[in-house]
Design a protein around this nucleic acid. Sequence first.
DNA 1: TATTCAGTTTCAAATACTGGAACCAGCCAG
DNA 2: CTGGCTGGTTCCAGTATTTGAAACTGAATA
Lengths: 263, 263
Amino acid sequence: MNSPKAVQGKADGTVGKALEVLDSVAAYERPVKFVELLEHSPYPKATLYRLLQTLTSQNLLSHDPETGTYSMGLRLIRLAHTAWEHASLAPIARPFVEELAAEAGESVHLAQLDNGQVIFVEKLKATDRFETLAQVGKVAPAYCTGVGKAMLAFIAPKRLDIVLQQQSFFPYTTATHASAESLLGELPDIRRDGIAFDREEHEQGIVSIAAPIFISNGRVIGALSVATSTTRYDLNGLTAFKASLLETAEKIGAQATSWHFPG
Amino acid sequence: MNSPKAVQGKADGTVGKALEVLDSVAAYERPVKFVELLEHSPYPKATLYRLLQTLTSQNLLSHDPETGTYSMGLRLIRLAHTAWEHASLAPIARPFVEELAAEAGESVHLAQLDNGQVIFVEKLKATDRFETLAQVGKVAPAYCTGVGKAMLAFIAPKRLDIVLQQQSFFPYTTATHASAESLLGELPDIRRDGIAFDREEHEQGIVSIAAPIFISNGRVIGALSVATSTTRYDLNGLTAFKASLLETAEKIGAQATSWHFPG
DNA sequence: TATTCAGTTTCAAATACTGGAACCAGCCAG
DNA sequence: CTGGCTGGTTCCAGTATTTGAAACTGAATA
């Protein structure tokens, strides 16, 4: 296949292999049959079979005997709930995020970095009441999102190197950074301003202004953004949110610090 | 604090053990130190240590070197998102649930059964805009919730036996079923009416009316409830929702069927 | 300097995992 | 009906992983 080894995720041990399989099921985003998985799997039939069996018996996958398909298991949702509630920034940040969303009248996103990807742990849309739910847990690339760049600009150089390796630099739009160099060029500006913009880099017509969130020892633990569409605000217009965005990020950081947030 | 008791402890293989450890970290609902885990762990120091290391390197746990504590990892949130979006009833049911919530003006809960526990995959509160988010993924016992009983009443006898084993029958309130027999006594009524009530069995002052959701082959795949507090409705009052509740459950079932929902 | 205590590493033994191959369906075509 | 598929499951010996007692760090007390 394409990547002989080590783009990321060294699959250490049995657990690693099992998770690899779990990920591959997740990637389908629908129930998959055994053969489908087998085709794209590095493991022989028997091995894959038993891996799937283990995952199923652990409720990480569910297997429908009628159609012979595997889908993601409910146990994940249960685990994630405690992860979200006790180990993400979301519960700490909630009141501040709400306040900002109400004040700005636009979507506010709270994100953290996981394995080089941005993972949204909270999304509030001031206008719409329900839409938001579907979005928590969603992932996006770091190199082409406001929150992603805000975090990249402030992580330790050593960690940055690793994270850069993990970026695909796929050109979603014409504004997307298409290489590490291009991205690196922007980071000093972000460091100077303490603010990052998404200039329709991930999705045409969507822009955002983002600020990193720090804990007291100076480490970035997440980022916060106000996102909107170009039909309502242009990039200059977005700077109107800069002050309250920074202030909110500050408050969240302080709160996280006093909570001994792992980071 | 109830007594969960690892009844169903078949920890097959390394993966099983790793997940057991993951669960035990989750149970703390806060960052935990190695020793704390060791004390309650059946595994010797070295083994637990390596298990934790594996989980951490897989991002299922995160380890804070400063405080030496472990907490749940972000990868779980990412995985759960796809589980929720592509393998739970929630996305299919969403429009119907919203409609019902708006019409009833009370909280509507959508739940599925996982390993003998009720897991809420959607909670909408018609009044409050934000509260809802924190609740998705939450678990509750099956034997003392409306949604739980609605499902138990209709699952296959063989499966019911297993599920009953998994119940703690902890008496949360004076109305809680304190034994399998007591619970079994109520199930025929539920089967007859197609409706289950939570008569403040889980929490003082909280009542609900729940209906099971079936797919075409007759299997229960979830349950739906309207929940409220005794200050606004008594049990009789709740029956006002019966018709629209059943209708909504029906619609969701039909939709799930046509989507080939795994169940 | 001695003494814990928490966490990490070692190493041979124990075990669980591997995967080629054989084995069962069920399905379809001849 | 028969023989050849294809998708799925089980066997079993060889081997790679995991195991855990014990030894080791290294920091914090005493």
